[in-house]
């Protein structure tokens, strides 16, 4: 005998009963969103118009106002959140930390992708080629694949609890590996050649320094906004799964009562 599919009404009421908001926005995140937008627009204005071109790299330098902050946010903030979330999940089995770890990694991979693309675009006029076996570029590429693998595990079609646990282990080990990759690649290239491009050598005046700082702040705010929303979507998905289970349980019980 086939189970009747739970009706849409029963599902929606079960979902509504589980959790208060059924949307991802809230007053504070709307403020955060507007702030992110304002910061982005002003970053564009400063990076593209107001700052002068850099002495030796000219206009291509402007890419770095986006490139460097994306790298900082993904490598130092996003994957650290994934690490912490994974550790806490394994200790407490709290869905909150599992979903947060996943949301941070997803946005982190996006930012790392931005880092790679802007890095290559910047490399073409600066080095004459899109790809240089520069230590940072190379280790960033490996890190990108590393966390793409983490996201692939999170997407697996399997028991959610087992999947979360395996993802958490992976989230921890990946961070360990991130460090190994970074240092070994730096060590490798360091033997053959010095840093291709030394940040300390560039001449940055007041406006440029301000723009660089603005870039870092902007990307953090954008990151926070994206992660909060990604987290809330994941949370709602989780609630929807559970609500589906609630409905199925209730229908089974009703079946039992009717016999």
């Amino acid at each position: 005998m086939n189970d009747p599919a739970p009706s849409q009404d029963a599902f929606e009421s079960a979902l509504a009963a589980r959790t208060a908001p059924l949307h991802t926005g809230s007053k504070s995140t709307r403020v955060l969103g507007v702030l992110a937008l304002v910061l982005l627009v002003s970053l564009l204005a400063f990076a593209l118009v107001i700052t002068p071109p850099e002495v030796s790299q000219r206009d291509s330098f402007r890419l770095l106002y986006l490139h460097v902050p994306s790298a900082i946010v993904s490598l130092y903030v996003a994957f650290a959140i994934t690490l912490v979330g994974s550790i806490i999940y394994l200790r407490k089995q709290s869905v909150f930390w599992d979903l947060l770890a996943g949301a941070a990694a997803e946005v982190g991979v996006l930012f790392l992708g931005i880092t790679l693309v802007t890095g290559m675009l910047w490399g073409k006029p600066t080095w004459g080629v899109y790809w240089q076996w520069d230590p940072r570029l190379t280790s960033t590429a490996v890190s990108f694949v590393l966390y793409a693998g983490y996201l692939a595990v999170r997407k697996l079609d399997m028991d959610p609890v087992v999947r979360s646990r395996r993802a958490a282990v992976l989230g921890i080990v990946s961070f360990l590996n991130l460090i190994i990759v970074r240092y070994s690649v730096q060590w490798w290239r360091g033997l053959h050649q010095g840093q291709t491009f030394d940040v300390a050598d560039t001449q940055m005046d007041g406006v440029m320094l301000f723009t660089a700082l603005l870039g870092v702040i902007t990307m953090h705010v954008v990151f926070a906004w994206l992660v909060i929303h990604r987290f809330r979507v994941a949370w709602l998905e989780h609630q929807a799964d559970e609500a589906g289970l609630d409905v199925a349980l209730r229908e089974r019980r009703a079946e039992g009562a009717n016999v």
């Binding site: 694949v145 590393l146 693998g149 595990v153 697996l156 080990v173 590996n177 990759v181 070994s184 690649v185």
Partner: peptide, 27 residues
């Protein structure tokens, strides 16, 4: 072990393992 018992094991394991072993290959 992470991919044990999964139907996609054969395609998942290379994606997970090779970036991890990249530093080993290098060294």
């Amino acid at each position: 072990a992470l991919a044990a018992g999964l139907r996609v094991r054969d395609t998942l394991v290379p994606l997970l393992v090779l970036p991890v072993l990249a530093p080993v290959l290098l060294a």
